[in-house]
């Protein structure tokens, strides 16, 4: 078994309140199974997604970020998911410039009826990020890219103090 197969990524997922969070609910009520690597945050709309949320998640140790929302044309707020989409493409370009694989951040549409799609997309995302390996950004960001440590000691600066995540150490 290769090293990358054993790596379990942590992914932060953003959902909108109306479609994709309900898709996650539906996946649950339908007892569909997906891997436990994704931890969700509920926003009202994918349009609320401030790109800094994504950077914050990556800086705090997430290996990937899944952004979800209503399908184009089905936004509860009429058209705000289009705005999320525009920001998403800019963000990907920016991540590339920062040397982060843009595949670590993914935008997926899921309607409230698409529990199965939600579960499938989560599974696929976990597989894909697993293949990319750990991002290890807290260590990279330790050089002071991030300001003060957060109050609970789990901010990026704090992570850098205590978490020299060196892949070599973990190799068998």
């Amino acid at each position: 078994m290769s090293e990358s197969e054993r790596f379990e990524p942590l992914i932060i997922g953003f959902t909108c309140n109306w479609c994709s969070y309900r898709a996650a609910d539906l996946a649950g009520t339908s007892r569909m199974k997906y891997p436990p690597n994704v931890r969700l945050i509920r926003l009202m709309c994918s349009g609320r997604l401030d790109p800094t949320f994504v950077l914050k998640a990556l800086a705090n140790g997430a290996d990937g970020v899944l952004i979800t929302g209503c399908h184009p044309g089905e936004c509860h707020y009429l058209e705000q998911n289009y705005k999320a989409m525009r920001r998403y493409y800019l963000l990907r370009a920016m991540l590339t410039q920062m040397g982060i694989e843009p595949e670590r951040v993914r935008l997926v549409w899921a309607s409230a009826a698409e529990g199965a799609r939600f579960a499938e997309e989560v599974t696929r995302m976990v597989e894909d990020v697993r293949r990319l390996g750990p991002l290890n950004w807290p260590a990279i960001a330790a050089d002071g890219a991030e300001p003060a440590a957060s109050r609970n000691g789990h901010g990026p600066a704090a992570a850098a103090e205590t978490a020299p995540v060196v892949p070599e150490e973990a190799k068998p």
């Binding site: 078994m1 090293e3 197969e5 054993r6 790596f7 379990e8 990524p9 942590l10 932060i12 436990p36 690597n37 931890r39 945050i41 949320f53 914050k56 998640a57 705090n60 140790g61 997430a62 750990p134 957060s150 609970n152 789990h154 901010g155 704090a158 992570a159 205590t162 978490a163 020299p164 995540v165 060196v166 892949p167 150490e169 973990a170 190799k171």
Partner: peptide, 26 residues
């Protein structure tokens, strides 16, 4: 919320130590 969600690693151990490489996938 992001900070809280990332407080623990995949297996539930406090993150911070080099614990993100797990033994054979569960």
């Amino acid at each position: 919320q992001i900070e809280g969600l990332l407080m623990l690693d995949f297996s539930g151990a406090p993150r911070g130590a080099a614990v993100r490489m797990l033994e054979p996938a569960l």
